[in-house]
Simulated assay, not measured.
Amino acid sequence: MSTLLQRSCSSSPLTFLGVSSCQKPVEIDADVVVVGIPCATPSMHNQQYSLAGLAGPTALRRTSAMLSAYHDRYDWDLKAPVLAANRVVDIGDLPVNFNQPEANRTILGTLLKS
């Protein structure tokens, strides 16, 4: 994988399924990159609905914690581990702002192009 907002990796207690966390710029060598996007394009017509989603990435990480012991299980259909721990990384949440949807989309676009 190319340099994806390039971050250095380490263990972190709150990541999706307990995989490695990346916080500082470096090259990421992973097959799967997990990223939280609390609000790329919030609905300004229904702000309560959009504001409720801001905690979504953290809620998913907390909920997945109970399954973290099983992320390396073998998938007999694919004939491979479900998620190889050294090939999956959680880069945290994108630095988005609820009141700046255009800037949020720019940040997301930059991530996807890298």
Rank of each mutant, 00 (worst) to 15 (best):
T58Y: 09
M44N: 06
T63A: 15
P25K: 13
A103L: 12
E102N: 08
A52E: 11
C9I: 14
V19R: 01
G18M: 05
F16C: 03
C9Y: 07
A55K: 02
V96R: 02
D75T: 11
A52S: 14
G109T: 14
L67W: 11
A80P: 03
D90V: 05
S21N: 01
L5R: 14
V96N: 01
R105M: 07
A69D: 11
S64F: 08
M66T: 12
I28Q: 02
G36L: 07
P81L: 10
G56Q: 08
I107M: 14
K24Q: 12
S11L: 13
V34I: 12
G18R: 01
T3P: 07
L60W: 11
L54Y: 01
L54W: 00
A40K: 01
C9M: 13
S2V: 15
V19W: 00
R87P: 06
L51S: 06
P57L: 09
S2R: 13
R73F: 15
P42N: 05
G53Y: 04
P38K: 10
G109R: 13
T58M: 11
L78A: 15
C9R: 14
S64K: 10
Y74L: 11
R61E: 12
T106N: 14
S43R: 09
N97Y: 07
G53R: 04
D31M: 02
V35I: 13
D31K: 02
S10N: 07
N104Q: 08
L14I: 09
V34E: 03
N46L: 10
T41R: 14
A103R: 15
D90P: 00
D90K: 06
A52N: 04
Q23S: 12
D93F: 08
S12A: 09
V26Y: 07
N99D: 12
S8W: 05
